[in-house]
Design a protein around this nucleic acid. Structure first.
Lengths: 334, 334
DNA sequence: TTGTATGCGTTATCAC
DNA sequence: GTGATAACGCATACAA
């Protein structure tokens, strides 16, 4: 099989400890022995055994990233950035897909597989307030998303309320008054949907308007397909509207698709906005006005916070809200 | 710290080996001791240490998946399916992003980090024929994509030539004659681009036509942005065309976006097709005619082939070409 | 600056 | 059925 440190040590005529020192760039090694060891390593094609190192060190250099689904563009783009941010710090990312299902989100926290990594960056969708205690585990966690669970776990949040308020104000500024929402589901919760809806309500209230409940199209999951379904049901109700807030971009894109099929002009008849600023929003027809939630900042901050826990071990609760930015595009006449 | 098998053994009043037997569902354990051990495990909250197990077993239960970028929808959707397929077999997936860069693709094969997993599912973009020897490593690999490297490594391929031929025939059947290609780059190679372009050429040749080199828009990488750029440069040339073959969906979507900006009607003035059948293609305006390359089949087959190598160790070379399917949509008048 | 000895937590061998 | 005990390959006190 492959060579071990012992083999290298024998060939180089040194001890195992010295080989270890060289491999780990330990400073106090004479240049001469360093060269001898390097030569032996090359000669034998030695490669470190990670399992052995991990066992000895008590850590793995890997972190788990748990997201609903990679096929959802927002999470794909987020994962992309998290992987890069972790790699820049020497960590490797292992992705777990939960499907947004409560049971699988629980498994992420408690399954044996979890123990393969040092920590967890977790973007839960289904866990509710009552599940907060589930986060009291003996490994570091950083949550992505709101403090839906009222726990002390550090988390990186989006500006859900302010972002939704910003797009809604943008719609109001253009004279839109009858604003529909696509994606509403469980407003009682503290998830992104509830918060973004709250932002819409807040902006409307400031303008002396109220959200018409008949103009809320529900979507249990957030995909193009459910966005399209929600828009169909909205149209069937016959209640007129002149703008649509998709609670995220794919919902908005699905809704736009249905508007197109029904001959409703965007933005002429109905303006449409989304949330997330996924790449696709720049290229859709029409291009989609949306909120950039600061994805890069979110990814980097999440990795930083987690590694801080892993290395240092500070335990203070932290909440970081990423900077958001309104991105006006054609779907609102930009 | 957390409990070890020794702790469990002590509490249960048995040996470590017996605990191991229970944890691993080893058959020859009496029901009584099994219960005692289980109780001790619950009492102590024992969880297995993977590093120790991995060291002892000589394997990790993890495989690496190396793709260009997760933010490219095709690779996001593919990764989604590969993760699920691997999970169904008890394996965990660790994703590596290469950016499609040759150096980073090499690193995937040779870096120390590679040793963290048992095998590799590899979707290379930049490796060329001369790099074939790089694949002669001492761990199992399954390649996604063509046999670009003329190696004996098993691989799962798409029907690039036949798929491209199918969409082109579809265009020809609708009376299109001046067919442009978006995404062409290095036709000398054996990558997906070359093969798909070859499929276009073949279909044209059968119809007594030839691909007009002035109608090939180049794109070094395959994104919506480069697709848009390629289309702009095509339009600048002033050479008329009545159809566009995007060498993948995002290229086609980027091209469609530019056609829209320039007031060119799709499909009335120009028909557009893509390749990959990403989710977005169903919802774009117009929806995009494309080729379903059999993504699920590709994912499952890749995992099967790799695990076959890991478990059994059969070493015969294998090439599997997934089933493709033409998906006609609005962008070609469907 | 380098070597020796020991531990990390699990599995495997082989007795009992 | 169950229990000692030796690997597995590396890191790290502690010595030298």
């Amino acid at each position: 099989m492959s060579a071990t440190m012992r083999d290298v040590a024998r060939v180089a005529g040194v001890s195992v400890k010295t080989v270890s020192n060289v491999v780990n760039d330990f400073p106090y090694v004479s240049e001469a022995t360093r060269r001898r060891v390097r030569a032996a390593i090359d000669q034998l094609g030695y490669q470190m055994n990670f399992s052995a190192r991990n066992l000895s060190l008590g850590r793995t250099g890997m972190v788990t990233l748990a997201v609903p689904e990679l096929s959802l563009p927002y999470f794909a783009e987020l994962s992309d950035e998290i992987i890069d941010a972790a790699a820049a710090r020497g960590y490797t990312v292992l992705i777990e897909q939960t499907g947004g299902l409560r049971q699988r989100e629980m498994e992420v926290l408690f399954s044996a597989r979890r123990r393969m990594t040092d920590g967890l960056i977790f973007s839960p969708l289904a866990l509710r307030g009552g599940d907060a205690s589930a986060l009291e585990v003996d490994f570091p966690i950083v949550l992505l998303g709101e403090r839906a669970l009222h726990s002390q776990v550090p988390h990186v949040a989006m500006a859900n309320v302010d972002g939704a308020r910003a797009v809604t104000e943008h719609l109001l500024a253009q004279g839109r008054r009858r604003i529909a929402v696509v994606g509403g589901f469980d407003e009682s919760g503290t998830g992104a949907g509830s918060l973004r809806t709250a932002g819409v309500r807040a902006a409307l209230a400031e303008a002396g308007l109220a959200l018409d409940d008949a103009l809320v199209g529900h979507a249990a999951t957030w995909t193009r397909g459910t966005g399209a379904d929600a828009m169909r049901s909205l149209l069937e109700r016959g209640r007129p509207f002149d703008a649509v807030v998709g609670l995220n971009d794919v919902l908005a894109l699905g809704a736009m698709r249905v508007l197109y099929e029904r001959g409703v002009g965007v933005p002429d008849d109905v303006a449409v906005v989304g949330f997330d600023d996924i790449e696709e929003a720049r290229f859709s027809r029409p291009s989609l006005t949306t909120v950039d939630p600061g994805r890069t900042q979110i990814a980097r901050t999440a990795v930083e916070l987690l590694l801080e826990r892993l290395d240092g071990g500070t335990s203070r609760a932290v909440e970081v809200v990423a900077d958001h930015r309104l991105v006006p595009r054609e779907s609102t006449g930009a």
